[in-house]
Design a protein around this nucleic acid. Structure first.
Length: 423
RNA sequence: GGAGGGCUGGCUGAGCGGUUGAAAGCACUGGUCUUGAAAACCAGCGUGGGUUUGUAGCCCACCGUGAGUUCGAAUCUCACGCCCUCCGCCA
């Protein structure tokens, strides 16, 4: 959520900034509601003040043994207008709040203009695109060819967009998560956390998935209103919801491995083949909670931490700055890491690293105490995948294949594979 | 599933329906003392919101959440949520 004070005091300029991401702010409705809110709020608070004053004097009179009946008569008429004003104010605040909850974050100045992914800007490349003296297969042909990947079994067990892996490929998948967690905890200073995979609605509001994106989530039936997490960002970032963190504890850096569940509503024809777009996938997430002045540096660092995983795996990739039209709702700036997939002969997203500035923190009431002022200030939240495990598996399969359809194991993973070098 | 207990400020923990935004302690900040430090002593110290050019002042709200009773609720009533203990079941 944006700062409501900012929205109403600089409504026009906020609206202009949001136009960059094709969000039309209903300036007229907001200013009218705010005007009304101001009037009603002042009226309500004056009435409350009046009531409090009178009630106090009744208390005093009673204590002094005076007759309070005249005072009671005086206050009798107050109640109704106060109740009405309070409920009017409540309604207005709810309306405004639901509008504010639906406004996306303001983009950082460095975000390039553009409508959609076509306009994203490549920042840098790493590694060499491998060349093959044979026609490289995609991961599905490789996996199915070996008998280690079977979408029909998954479809029988559940339905479409799920995958069944077996044998050394299932182990390779597991090895990847182990490697990533070990790497980030030992080399990059993240604390490993284990978190719930079901979350409540407060948590989802906090990180911005609700109220706008309920369709993307799997909801549980039953006595609790719980949802399957679409990303570890939700449980991990919510660690600091309603907390005030000591300055000397910052930055907080967490990493977690979780499964992620996305309904992928509205992507019906897209990436139906293989592991690219599934309802269930694994991810190792990186989350940093930092002071405002450090968040852009943190974004660069966190992005580089994700990149290092690709470098260790010797996979060619590029870093792309998402353009204004492609940056997600809660983010102020996002870098995507795109890995080269020989099976598709193109770069595909394997990580997304974002700075949310105070957008999530404001919803979360996640703050730190500034020792200079003694006052709480909103944290900035920064997160990214480090990396998406399923897509990393795809990248390894396709980049490390040979002409016989074998998959060679990257050096850094061999110890996790019990010394296996090829599958 | 059954039976109890509890949710108060950064933390611990008091709180007869009437200046209680809330005692006390801890922590923190400033000061006195000291060569310095510690201790001791003194003072300050909640969060959110409104108004406003204003981190000044004034005002409002907040004691798990939401309703209710009342002139007045942290204190009474109801519902819900969460936590804890015991029993049962169980990976």
């Amino acid at each position: 959520m944006l700062d409501p004070k900012l929205v109403r005091s600089e409504l026009q300029s906020v609206a202009e900034k949001l136009q960059r991401r094709n969000h039309e702010l209903d300036v007229k409705a907001i200013s009218q509601l705010e005007e009304k809110r101001k009037e009603v709020q002042i009226r309500t608070q004056n009435l409350q003040n009046d009531r409090n004053t009178r009630s106090r004097s009744i208390g005093k009179a009673k204590a002094a043994g005076e007759d309070i009946q005249p005072l009671l008569d005086e206050v009798a008429s107050l109640g109704e207008s106060l109740t009405q004003a309070e409920s009017e104010l409540h309604d207005l605040q709810q309306k405004l709040n639901s509008i504010y909850m639906g406004i996306p974050n303001i983009l950082h100045d460095s975000v390039p203009d553009g409508r959609d992914e076509v306009d994203n800007v490549e920042i840098r490349q790493w590694g060499e695109i491998p060349s093959f003296d044979f026609e490289p297969m995609d991961h599905v042909d490789l996996g199915e060819g070996k008998g280690f990947m079977n979408s029909e079994i998954a479809a029988k067990i559940t339905g479409s967009r799920f995958m069944f892996l077996s044998g050394p490929l299932a182990r390779l998948h597991r090895s990847l998560t182990q490697f990533m967690l070990d790497f980030h905890t030992s080399e990059h200073g993240y604390e490993e956390v284990y978190v719930p995979y079901l979350v409540n609605t407060d948590s989802l509001h906090g990180t911005g998935q609700l109220p706008k994106f309920a369709d993307d989530l799997f909801a549980l039936k039953g006595e609790h209103e719980y949802f399957l997490i679409p990303t570890a960002e939700v449980p991990v970032t919510n660690i600091v919801r309603d907390e005030i963190i000591d300055a000397d504890k910052l930055p907080l850096k967490y990493t977690a491995h979780t499964p992620c569940f996305r309904s992928e509503a509205g992507s019906y024809g897209k990436d139906t083949r293989g592991l690219i777009r599934q309802h269930q996938f694994e991810k190792v997430e990186l989350v940093q909670l930092v002071k405002a002045e450090n968040s852009y540096q943190a974004l660069e660092e966190l992005t580089s931490h994700a990149e290092k995983v690709l470098q260790k795996l010797e996979l060619a990739y590029r870093v792309v700055a998402l353009c204004a039209g492609d940056v997600g709702f809660s983010s102020a700036k996002t870098y995507d890491l795109e890995v080269w997939l020989p099976g598709q002969a193109k770069y595909r997203e394997i990580s997304s690293c974002s700075n949310f500035e105070a957008f999530q923190a404001r919803r979360l009431q996640a703050r730190w105490r500034n020792p200079d002022t003694g006052k709480p200030e909103l944290l900035h939240t920064v997160n990214g995948s480090g990396l998406a495990v399923g897509r990393t598996l795809v990248a390894i399969m396709e980049n490390y294949q040979d002409k016989d359809g074998n998959i060679h194991i990257p050096d850094v993973l061999q110890s996790y594979m019990g010394g296996l070098t090829v599958i």
